[in-house]
Amino acid sequence: MTIPNFLRILPFAGTILLTACASPDEGRGINDPYEETNRAWHDRNVALDRAVIRPVSNAYGTAVPDPLRRGLSNVSDTLSIPGAVVNDLLQFELGDAVHNTARFAVNATIGLAGLFDPATEMGLEARDADFGETLHRWGVTEGAYVVLPVYGPSTERDALGLAVDVALDPVGSLLGSNERKAKTGLTVAELADTRYRYSDIYESIIYESADSYAQMRLTYLDQRRYELGTPIGSAATGETEGGGSYDIYEDFYE
């Protein structure tokens, strides 16, 4: 009997939840007890970027016209909307759930399966939601900072959120094997386009910083805390400030 994907991650989920709940409150500096291991994975990820990801993304960005790259990224974004709707419901954000459902319906039909984005022009802008955010809404603290293979910077809470989002993907669960491969290909194309589009900013962090690990850690934690509405600016100093500050990393992550 095949074990559902969600059940397979339950042991991992329990460990992460227990660790995260026992960790210091988020927004109060850097919690990095795994720094030695994290730095090793960071170095491997940088080496992978230099050897594979950067040349592939540059080739993709050079060979594929910008309108087509944007269109493929739009399709990938549209396919991710049902997952956002699930998290909206889990967070009891019914308004966002209705908004994202309408966005999906418009782009999947008028937008030709998501190739175009007429929904944004109609006032149905993207409102992302993920299971890491859902856990935050449920009171789970961010836990320790971790670096994931290939994926890069995360926290224990967001690592669990990523695993659950993959396991519970509503669209992926309805597709056949060939369609799932195509969906994965679209995701890879979107990541390659993002890497190419923001290469100057990304490379200034990982190749030009005196300590690229520390800079990436600071960038990720401040950005994620900003997204979740928790105090920002604290990853560097340990001091907390009220919400409402500007997003200093907006250009990098959009």
Rank of each mutant, 00 (worst) to 15 (best):
T155Y: 13
G95W: 03
E208I: 03
P4F: 02
E121T: 00
T230R: 15
R70Q: 13
A13S: 04
G132S: 00
C21H: 07
A22Q: 11
N178M: 13
F12Y: 05
T240H: 11
E26Q: 14
D77P: 01
L72Y: 13
L7Q: 09
S245F: 10
D247L: 08
L68T: 10
I206H: 09
T187P: 01
D222N: 14
E203V: 02
G83P: 04
T19F: 14
Y145L: 00
P153W: 11
V98M: 06
V75K: 02
M216R: 07
A51G: 02
H42F: 15
V98P: 04
F131P: 07
L68N: 09
D211Q: 00
G185K: 12
R54L: 05
P231K: 00
L148T: 07
E121A: 03
S234H: 08
I248T: 11
N100S: 12
L72R: 11
N38K: 07
S245C: 01
G83H: 02
Q223L: 09
L17N: 08
S73R: 09
A108K: 01
E250H: 08
T37W: 13
L115E: 13
N74I: 02
G95N: 06
A182V: 10
S234Q: 06
E241V: 10
L115H: 12
Y220E: 09
P4K: 02
I53P: 03
I53L: 15
E227T: 11
P118E: 09
E36V: 14
V85D: 00
